[in-house]
Amino acid sequence: MTTPDFDVTGTGPVLLLLPGGAGHPMGLGPLVARLAHRFTVVTYDPLGLAHGRLGQPVPDQRPEDWADGADRVLAAVLPPGERGYVFGTSSGGIAALALAARHPERLAHVVAHEPPCALVLPDGADRRRELLAALDGPGRPPAEGPDATPMGVFLAHVLHPFTAYVPTPAPALLTLAAGADSRDQLPHRTAEFLAEGALLELPGGHLGTLEHPEEFADRLAEALTSISVEG
């Protein structure tokens, strides 16, 4: 099995980033640059969309598959005996939850930011239908060539299966995070519900990684390194 696509920059302990949407790391440059002052930042591109495969056919995705790919990336980049930090946002946050549950042995600390796994909520089925209607309506790419853009891939192959994912308890150290500006929105509610009160607040809203990259990176770095599992 081949190692999935990823990019590496910076020095220090390994921090694996799991982008949202269809996993394309577009727009994360400022966040990565800031984090690279303190970490070896490994940006995972689960579908290879930023590595020449955008426009190729994509099957429906599963969080478990992204998690297994992320584990292979960590195996490729971690020095022997060391554990890695992980940050995932949105759909990447769901993949981070799956990674923590499936492969805790390589993980020091995982932060999952606003994972929209709606079905964990008491009214989750209704809220998921509302989310799908809002995102999967008139703005959806045409049936022909939905895999031609990252958003098309997300809507056609990621949105439905990922929002239906129900995480299992994770033995690895896991922190749920949400944006200061996204209270009452579905992804914030799911993070708050899963956190059971211990919620990390990060700058901005659901797209805080793009809205306030430097402040977001600094707060994330503090949270990741505050507590970790010894190797």
Rank of each mutant, 00 (worst) to 15 (best):
M1F: 08
T2I: 09
P4Y: 05
P4D: 00
D5H: 15
F6D: 05
T11N: 15
G12L: 04
P13C: 03
L17C: 10
G23Q: 12
G23W: 08
H24S: 15
H24I: 12
H24C: 12
P25L: 06
M26D: 14
V32M: 05
V32R: 15
R34Q: 14
L35Y: 06
R38Y: 00
R38I: 07
F39H: 09
V42K: 05
Y44Q: 13
D45E: 03
L47K: 12
G48S: 02
G52H: 11
V58E: 06
P59V: 12
D68H: 11
G69Y: 09
A70V: 12
R72M: 13
V73E: 08
L74I: 08
L74F: 03
L78K: 06
P80V: 06
G84T: 06
G88L: 00
T89P: 02
T89C: 05
G93P: 10
I94T: 13
A95H: 03
A98K: 05
A98R: 11
H103E: 04
H103D: 03
P104G: 09
P104I: 02
E105S: 01
E105T: 12
E105H: 15
V110K: 03
V111E: 04
A112P: 06
A112E: 04
A112Y: 09
H113K: 08
A118F: 09
V120I: 13
L121H: 10
D123L: 02
G124H: 10
D126P: 09
R129S: 14
E130T: 14
L131Q: 07
L131T: 10
L131W: 01
L135N: 05
P138K: 14
P138L: 12
G139A: 05
R140W: 05
R140V: 00
P141L: 04
P142L: 14
P146A: 11
A148T: 15
P150H: 11
M151A: 12
V153K: 11
V153Q: 09
F154N: 00
A156N: 10
T163M: 07
A164Q: 14
P167L: 01
T168P: 00
A170V: 04
P171V: 02
A172W: 07
A177H: 06
A180M: 11
D181K: 12
S182N: 14
R183V: 13
R183F: 06
R183E: 13
D184K: 14
L186F: 04
P187F: 04
P187K: 02
R189A: 12
R189W: 01
R189V: 03
A191M: 04
A195W: 05
A195V: 02
A195N: 05
E196S: 15
A198F: 07
L199R: 07
L200A: 08
L200C: 12
E201T: 15
L202H: 00
P203I: 09
G205D: 07
G205L: 05
G208K: 00
E211V: 11
E215M: 00
E215V: 02
F216T: 01
A221E: 07
A221D: 05
S226Q: 12
I227L: 13
I227G: 14
S228V: 13
V229H: 14
V229G: 01
V229I: 13
V229W: 14
E230R: 15
